[in-house]
Design a protein around this nucleic acid. Structure first.
Lengths: 246, 246
DNA sequence: CGGGTAATTGACCCGGGTCAACAGCAGTGG
DNA sequence: CCACTGCTGTTGACCCGGGTCAATTACCCG
């Protein structure tokens, strides 16, 4: 019954059974699947749908004319891509699949229908959007001020906590499908330097990363290294005053 | 009649006379003023109002425990700070005044009242929010991938275009109240290096910057240096199909 | 077993940081 | 009117984190 989607939303406020049903129905209507390394939508295209990641990892990225590339955000299961994007004429960035991704495409009408009839969901979606903005700000801080080891440590902690929130961690480890090149593009470093920095994190006994699985050996120390402040994730059920009670 | 606020919104869709009146009334209700270098709201505090910049420049910034500081966004006249923030329990960043700032504080009820009765404004506010997110992404790209000269050039072009959109430029120049330290904190560089890079931009005949006034001597070349793509500002009246016609 | 992608290593280099001194200038108060 | 103070901008000398280039090596998958 509890999937990443409802877990994600309920990190803000508890939904009623009826809310959950409406949400799951919304998510189930039009499901698509795409291979790893393929683009879901490209810069310049008109955004027609809100997308919801059901399974797999995706990313938003931007490119410079000379092919420098920056991953500006990551989408994990339960994440929506841009509520209300269809207000804009064209995409100013790309969304690409890092792994094989299952996602649902939600049209404007379906979205509007749910939000007008389910105020609690509407509030939760607003919360989701505000959190997405907060994460984007934290990433700006990350690439702007942190050193290589701090950036990567920060990325690991953030992703671990986000995955945990949607039930996708096992004790102290989780899937971690990003390549070192992906990590480089998300942190504004080069792949070579990411490699060396990962070795340092391993040497320091902070993490283990092999076969696309990340194990965090010492979360507290890793947080310290990253100067991680979890406040920007707003995961403390901040909308609990809106909780449904059925 | 046309102030930065309505100019800003009408970069998306033309408002009716009544829309404008409602908007201006909203903006006029509770106006405050604050000195340069003071904080408008601090990390940890509960956000109670949506704020609208009427006059002056403000910024959002985040700090690391060791006092490294990153300006993650800038607010110019006509900009709203975070629609619907009051959904969150506490601020995860600070908002500070770069100059003396006049702004209005809009409570939740006033905001809700306007949006429920003025769908065109609601759409426009959504557009505003989506653009703010797009700008944040571009800033992540900026600090993540661009070199020093590219970053600063990009900042100048962005701010010039944003100021132009709200009628605050004169031909090829505009006020530019940021110090070199401010520029450094916005671009993830040091003040020393900003100083040297500014000298290079001057030597190259791209800009003039003195006495808090910026003059752009060659906008096309500056855009080239910055690899500036204006699409993320979404300033092309993308909501013109919603235009009012009175 | 072969081919392609991802990870690793070494040698070298450079953009931008650091530190420290100093100059310019605006505001403030006597 | 000037002296003082503090912020902002400027400069020089030096250094280092991280980039570049290029070659291997490991791994994955059909």
């Amino acid at each position: 019954m509890d999937n990443p989607l409802s877990l994600r939303i309920e990190a803000f406020t508890r939904l009623s059974r009826e809310d959950k049903a409406a949400l799951n129905q919304l998510a189930a209507r039009s499901v698509r699947e795409i291979d790893a390394r393929r683009d879901i939508i490209r810069e310049g295209e008109p955004p027609r749908y809100v997308r919801l990641i059901l399974d797999g990892w995706a990313c938003r990225y931007k490119m410079l004319p000379d092919a420098r590339r920056q991953i500006v955000s990551l989408f994990l299961p339960g994440d929506f891509c841009d509520l209300n994007v269809y207000i804009l004429k064209e995409m100013d960035h790309n969304i690409g699949a890092l792994t094989r991704v299952r996602f649902s495409e939600i049209g404007r009408e379906a979205m509007d229908a749910v939000t007008t009839t389910h105020p609690r969901i509407t509030q939760a979606l607003w919360w989701h959007e505000l959190v997405a903005m907060a994460v984007q700000r934290e990433w700006t801080l990350n690439v702007g001020q942190r050193t290589a080891i701090e950036r990567i440590a920060h990325l690991f902690v953030e992703l671990f906590l986000r995955l945990k929130a949607v039930g996708l961690t096992r004790r102290d480890s989780c899937d971690f499908p990003m390549t070192q090149t992906d990590i480089a593009e998300a942190t504004g470093l080069t792949a070579v330097h990411v490699n060396r920095t990962l070795q340092q994190l391993r040497r320091d006994g902070l993490i283990q990363l092999e076969r696309k699985e990340l194990t965090i050996l010492d979360l507290d120390r890793l947080k310290d290294v990253a100067m991680f402040n979890p406040n920007y994730l707003h995961l403390n059920r901040e909308g609990r005053h809106l909780d449904a009670n059925d």
